[in-house]
């Protein structure tokens, strides 16, 4: 067989094989990435990130993992204790119902605000929205996966 024809044949197959080697390597990277994500402790529904907190409790930059029901206020029995002069004992409750988040004001003295708008009774809140109780500002974020 003509050596040129033969080498062209081999090169063609090597080219195709290299395409698949690339794909194989990429898929291995993707699988490793997915496994690492699955190993991380999950099952949180969302996160609350503290943006501003003059009182120091909660600390600025802290992130709380959220369950379906999270209560906020000055009382020590709340899920997230907000130690601020303008926060009430039982200030607000954050709930996850069906597919969306809601925040309910529990009749606080100084009100609860979503993106600066006062919450009248209950209001929908989306990921990325800002929640304010007294001087404490928090942001709702998606769960880390």
């Amino acid at each position: 067989m003509d050596p040129v024809v033969l080498s062209i044949w081999i090169l063609r197959l090597v080219f195709l094989a290299l395409l698949y080697w690339f794909l194989w390597t990429v898929v291995r990277v993707l699988m490793r990435d997915l496994r690492a994500a699955a190993r991380e402790p999950g099952a949180e529904l969302g996160r609350l990130l503290v943006l501003a907190s003059p009182g120091g409790e909660p600390a600025v930059g802290a992130a709380f993992s959220l369950d379906a029901v999270t209560t906020l206020g000055r009382d020590v029995n709340n899920t997230i204790v907000v130690d601020d002069d303008f926060a009430s004992g039982d200030h607000a409750v954050l709930t996850y119902r069906g597919r969306a988040w809601y925040v309910e004001d529990l009749g606080s003295t100084n009100g609860t605000f979503v993106n600066g708008d006062p919450v009248d009774g209950i209001a929908a809140i989306a990921f990325g929205d800002e929640l304010q109780l007294g001087n404490v500002r928090l942001r709702l974020e998606r769960a880390r996966r």
């Binding site: 040129v4 024809v5 090169l11 063609r12 290299l18 690339f22 390597t25 990429v26």
Partner: peptide, 22 residues
């Protein structure tokens, strides 16, 4: 990954050139 891609493309280029030469 870039190294594998570069190797593959080089082989493809050589294969193309040889086919034309032949």
């Amino acid at each position: 990954l870039l190294a594998i891609a570069a190797l593959g493309l080089t082989v493809g280029s050589v294969s193309l050139a040889l086919t034309r030469l032949a």
